[in-house]
Design a protein around this nucleic acid. Structure first.
Length: 471
RNA sequence: GCUCGUAUAGUGUAGUGGCCCAUCAUGAAGCCCUCUCGAGGCUUCGACCCGGGUUCAAAUCCCGGUACGAGCACCA
């Protein structure tokens, strides 16, 4: 009996409603800090589609909030670098929202002119009562002229102050979903923006700014977290007012990586300021710079996210899944090296080759490593005082007497160092930084080389020691 | 409370009515190879949330239940 082999879809699912067009995708972080692991999903998914379908990836800085999550100037420079590192190509366009404010103002005014927006002077608390009670606020029925006048008052420093008035999109106060009822589109902020200072007073909120910008840029597909589902619905209502067609939208669910815990950009910023972490590159942090420093390869990150796919399911994945992809990326080019922790000296008695070479990598043609022994070697304390096989050298008994050059039995094979240099291996485990002292085999690999420490795992050579990649 | 969404092995994932006693990866266990607890090869383990309905036929469609998650900000 023959059974047909089931066809399994490889990679990302097909993009819906492509209709032969090249997709225009975007990834829009808030530049209030460097990119982190969480951002990498959006970058990878949007980037892979843009690359595979010969479309375009827009990198957009949604930096219209100067109060709650104010922008950080260095992020404007670091984010494009991190984006290119991760995606493997630079974004086709970079859009900075704070420099396109005149467009948002233009469409805000069109909204008022068209009678589908209004300036609301109710307090947030008062409006909440209307939202919950499905009642209309008094500002809703004001004339277009009244609204235009109030709009200019919002923009006038001598008139409305922050909190006095917001611009709202007129939807329907009896909509089933409370989130959609006359949602806010813009508000007054007087904190200076790091890029454009106090040039603007009325700033758009995400749902409005993003919607207008997606339209202006001709975005065809929006792929984002399902927490933004209501954003889509709000923006679709706005698009209907303008007579635009909303892009195809796809969502992914929440991802929890247990080892990373709950890091937020603002929390990390505080912890770094308090000295809890050494900086954005601290190997304990889930930032892209830290991951890169720790030897995580961009292709591993890409394979990881593509494999998780685009389901709306909430998932929890262990970091070991990412590590498994990373091993595939680094093993083939990682030279082997010995690092002896808790070094214990063993004097060798008997005949054995005092000089020789050992393979650097059993599956590649890497130049072999040389060793030279005076009278003994270092082994790990845990391996001492029992018969062992010194890897690639000889069998010895518990006292260091050489028993055989060839492997004679199934005794454990142990790594060792002759000479060597004392070094340290730093291991980031959760919130802790563990340092292990040891002796590293002499080598000429440059800083930044990812090596495999035999019987320990992968590590990256740094100026002052070794940083554990993963095992 | 209201609204929206999701539910396949330990963890992820494929699968849109019959090729499914369910795919692939990861994980665990074991074997082979290898002078690493690495890499590679092989074997084994292990799942369609529950209850109804539609149908000749349901993991797949419909309805309830349950669980989990998200939104209801003058944050993104």
């Amino acid at each position: 009996m023959e059974r047909k082999v089931q066809t399994r879809r490889e990679g990302l699912p097909e993009l819906p409603n492509l209709n032969g067009q090249k997709p225009i995708l975007r990834f829009a972080p808030n530049p209030n800090g460097p990119l982190s692991f969480g951002h990498s999903r959006g970058l990878v998914i949007n980037g892979e589609y843009a690359k595979d379908l010969d479309g375009e990836l827009i990198l957009r800085f949604d930096d219209t909030d100067t109060t709650v999550k104010p922008p950080m100037m260095e992020a404007y420079d670091s984010i494009p670098i991190q984006q290119e590192w991760l995606c493997g190509f630079p974004a086709h366009r970079i859009v900075i929202a704070s420099e396109r404010m005149e467009h948002y103002h233009e469409y805000a005014k069109k909204m008022l002119d068209g009678g589908f927006g209004y300036v609301c002077t109710c307090s947030a608390e008062d409006f909440k009562v209307h939202r919950v009670g499905m009642t209309e606020c008094p500002c809703r029925d004001n004339s277009i002229d009244e609204n235009l006048e109030r709009w200019s008052k919002m923009n006038d420093p001598k008139e409305y102050q922050p909190g006095d008035a917001v611009l709202r999109v007129k939807t329907d106060m009896t909509l089933k979903n409370p989130a959609l009822r006359d949602w806010p589109a813009a508000r007054i902020q007087t904190n200076p923006h790091p890029r454009v200072g106090n040039r603007w007073r009325v700033w758009p909120l995400l749902d409005f700014q993003s919607a207008v910008e997606d339209y202006l840029q001709g975005v065809t597909h929006i792929i984002r977290g399902k927490d933004l589902m209501d954003s889509t619905r709000k923006q679709t209502l706005l698009y209907a007012h303008f007579g635009w067609e909303y892009p195809e939208t796809i969502y992914w669910g929440r991802v929890k990586v247990h080892e990373f815990g709950a890091f937020s950009t603002s929390q990390m910023k505080r912890d770094i300021a308090e000295g809890k972490f050494s900086g954005w590159e601290d190997p304990r942090l889930p930032t892209l710079t830290a991951l890169s420093r720790r030897g995580i390869q961009p292709e591993a990150l890409r394979a990881f996210w593509v494999e998780l796919g685009l389901t709306q399911k909430d998932i929890a994945v262990p970091l070991s899944t990412l590590y498994s992809h990373n091993t595939k990326a680094i093993d083939i080019k990682a030279p082997r090296l010995s690092f002896v922790r808790n070094a214990f000296p063993v004097v060798l008695n008997g005949e054995y080759p005092k000089e020789g070479t050992i393979q650097s990598h059993s599956d590649t043609e890497m130049p072999p490593r040389k060793y030279s022994i005076d009278e003994g070697v270092w082994i790990e304390k845990e391996d001492s005082s029992k018969p062992i096989r010194l890897k690639d050298l000889c069998d010895i008994d518990a006292d260091g007497n050489v028993e055989s050059i060839d492997r004679s039995d199934k005794r454990p094979v142990v790594h060792w160092v002759a000479g060597g240099t004392s070094s340290k291996l730093v291991i980031a485990s959760g919130q802790d930084l563990e340092t292990v002292e040891g002796i590293l085999e002499d080598n000429t690999h440059p800083v930044g080389t990812i090596v495999q420490l035999e019987r320990i795992g992968y590590a990256i050579l740094e100026e002052d020691g070794l940083l554990m990649v993963h095992d």
